[in-house]
């Protein structure tokens, strides 16, 4: 009976959604309102006014930068949420499964990981810095950076990770994305423009473009570093085992 009711509900939703989808404009049609109203401006002027040769980056950092600021806050909130439930790992009270197991990782594994990690981090840096010309950017690069730390912690144990990346370094870097957005935003205010404005008419042509590039880079790097560190922190608080 219950299954039947669930099926019935889903069937009704399906019919309703289908009836809406049928009426939607066909995908990819240049006559669509989505391609006529806001988007042409992005495509035609995006590189010039948006400041990034990759239009997607221009939209997420410049035209809709405030949304991205909200998104980095969501990531920061996720970390705060994990810490609220699980607490942060602590040198005094935490240990890991790896550290407690009688058999440590083999020489081959540790050597390979040690060799691999610099390349993963290099790729992360490349992805972060290259975000404005090709697909990529802070979030993606940050995820790769975070993966490198997770990889490291898995093999060498949480204690080594805690010794390598100390709390005094980790805590400020976790807030880096929001803070770099705020700093970039306040630069606009300083020049009498609106929050998160990237072009300051008060400056000379060249200085404007240089400043905009610096601001975009600041934000990209801030997002990348914060995302990576946050990934590591979330993993560490999941990985830790309370010492009894």
């Amino acid at each position: 009976m219950r299954k039947f009711l669930i099926f019935l509900c889903l069937a009704i939703c399906w019919v309703v959604f289908l009836s809406a989808v049928v009426e939607m404009p066909p995908f990819g049609d240049p006559a669509n309102i989505t391609n006529r109203h806001v988007v042409p401006r992005y495509l035609e002027e995006g590189v010039e006014e948006g400041g990034a040769s990759n239009i997607v980056t221009g939209i997420i950092l410049n035209y809709r930068g405030y949304d991205t600021m909200g998104e980095v806050t969501v990531i920061f909130t996720a970390l705060a949420g994990v810490l609220a439930v699980l607490k942060r790992e602590d040198v005094k009270t935490s240990t890991t499964m790896v550290a407690t197991s009688p058999v440590g990782p083999s020489l081959i594994v540790t050597t390979v990981v040690k060799l691999l990690i610099p390349f993963i981090v290099l790729f992360a840096v490349y992805t972060i810095l290259h975000g404005d010309v090709s697909p990529g950017g802070g979030f993606q690069g940050g995820a790769v950076f975070g993966a490198s730390m997770i990889h490291y912690t898995l093999i060498f144990g949480l204690l080594t990770y805690m010794r390598k990346i100390r709390l005094a370094v980790k805590v400020p870097l976790e807030s880096a994305a929001i803070l770099s957005f705020a700093i970039a935003g306040f630069i606009g205010l300083f020049f009498g423009q609106k929050f998160l404005t990237f072009l300051m008419p008060a400056l000379s042509h060249e200085a404007q473009y240089l400043l905009r590039h610096a601001m975009l880079l600041l934000i990209e790097v801030g997002i990348g570093v914060a995302t990576g560190i946050i990934f590591g922190s979330i993993f560490a608080s999941l990985e830790k085992v309370e010492r009894i």
């Binding site: 600021m69 806050t73 920061f76 705060a80 805590v171 400020p172 976790e174 807030s175 929001i178 803070l179 705020a182 935003g185 205010l189 609106k194 929050f195």
Partner: peptide
């Protein structure tokens, strides 16, 4: 700028609280 500052000030405040 108050319409944006009422959002950004608590947001930055939150980001600085762990520090």
């Amino acid at each position: 700028h108050f319409p944006i500052l009422i959002v950004v000030v608590p947001l930055v405040g939150a980001a600085l609280t762990p520090l």
